[in-house]
Amino acid sequence: MEPDADTSTPGRITRDDVAYVARLARLNLTDFELDGFTGQLADVLDHAADIEALDLDGVAPTSHPLPLSNVFRADVPTVGPAEEANHRLFCDEVIAAAPAAEESRFRVPPVLGEAP
């Protein structure tokens, strides 16, 4: 999937594109699923082609309905000594909800190479 600098109308999504995107999204697809999804994704993207006809030069993009600015709170600790016990309890609940944990940490299989 090489970036194509001046492509405004990309070609139809291919089976290879879908396989690549599935890998990026951490989804394993069977051959049968790949065929089905390729056709369905192409249908949706074909429908999106109706906006190709619009003259969008000079139109600013909208990413959000509100003019967002960062929201700051007062620079005071919300977890002081008095709330420490509650905070600890909350962390314990979060850890308890995980599929695997060890010593208050999320436990996962090896990330790089052999397990220590």
């Binding site: 999937m1 090489e2 970036p3 194509d4 492509t7 405004s8 109308t9 990309p10 999504i13 594109d17 879908v18 995107v21 599935a22 990026l24 999204a25 989804l27 999804f37 994704l41 949706v44 993207l45 999106a48 906006i51 190709e52 619009l54 969008l56 139109v59 600013a60 993009p61 909208t62 990413s63």
Partner: peptide, 26 residues
Amino acid sequence: IMLGTYALSAGYYDAYYGKSQKVRTL
């Protein structure tokens, strides 16, 4: 998820996501 990953991927971002954001402005 695949549609979104595709629309945000290099080479397709402007054609799909970028244009859609402009349509949102319209």
